[in-house]
């Protein structure tokens, strides 16, 4: 039974894709990469479902596919089509620095979860570490990016991280919970995107550094 192995390997792929999303040159490419990443997440869910023999997780993968592989990227791409993206807004971290930070974070997360003693996740410790690291990488993305849309992606990455944790630890939770979480992600993205568009319209920029009206 090599299910856990596949899960751990796919989790590694998750980190790679999330680095790609963070360092993507423009938002369109980031949206496509994000779809790819969500697909990896769905694959993890499917593997887990087979490993645990848990029919709940099949439903999870379906709902994750619908919301994260299809809906969210579609919303983002549609939004991008209406926005004039002329600005060049590089992040604070260079790709090389990003990789170093990511390695640090994932290492720390794996160390942090090594003390967790739960029968469910013992063979999946690396994946659990990755899920936490992924969550924190999303945070790094939000903090280090100047482009508002990239911040939205940062939030999506965090979502994927916590979604994975949930799938690893809490897949027996009632379905309604999962549906709540999945729809929440979509709603959050929709609301963020609407705000981004209104900000773009009123300030003519997507640069977070231009948001300086409120201080103190």
């Amino acid at each position: 039974m090599n299910g856990p192995l596949i899960v751990n390997a796919l989790a590694g792929l998750l980190i790679v894709t999330s680095l790609l999303v963070t360092s993507a040159g423009n938002a369109t490419r980031a949206a496509r990469l994000y779809a790819a990443q969500s697909l990896v997440l769905v694959l993890i869910f499917l593997t887990l479902a087979r490993t645990h023999g848990a029919h709940e997780l099949y439903w999870w993968s379906v709902s994750a596919f619908v919301t994260k592989v299809v809906l969210v990227p579609w919303i983002m791409l549609r939004t991008l089509a209406t926005l004039p993206e002329k600005e060049d807004l590089p992040g604070v971290l260079s790709p090389a620095a990003l990789i170093v930070v990511a390695a640090l974070i994932v290492g720390l997360s794996c160390y942090a979860v090594s003390s967790v003693h739960l029968a469910v996740v013992d063979p999946l410790k690396p994946a659990l570490g990755v899920s936490l690291g992924h969550f924190l990488l999303g945070l790094v993305c939000i903090v280090s990016q100047r482009n508002l849309l990239k911040q939205v992606f940062g939030f999506c990455l965090m979502e994927n991280g916590s979604h994975l944790t949930l799938a690893l630890l809490a897949w027996r939770a009632p379905e309604l919970v999962e549906i709540g979480i999945a729809t929440d992600a979509v709603f959050a993205v929709v609301i963020m995107v609407v705000l981004v568009r209104r900000i773009q319209r009123s300030m003519n920029t997507l640069d977070v550094r231009q948001l300086t009206a409120l201080k103190g």
């Binding site: 969550f135 945070l139 965090m158 916590s162 630890l169 963020m192 705000l195």
Partner: peptide, 29 residues
Amino acid sequence: SSLEAAWKYVVICPVGVAFGLYGVVLVYS
């Protein structure tokens, strides 16, 4: 200014509350 406030609100709170989710999931599992 109100759009800026809304943006901060909608980024900081879900991010923060995501930490809460982690705590919840730990207790749950």
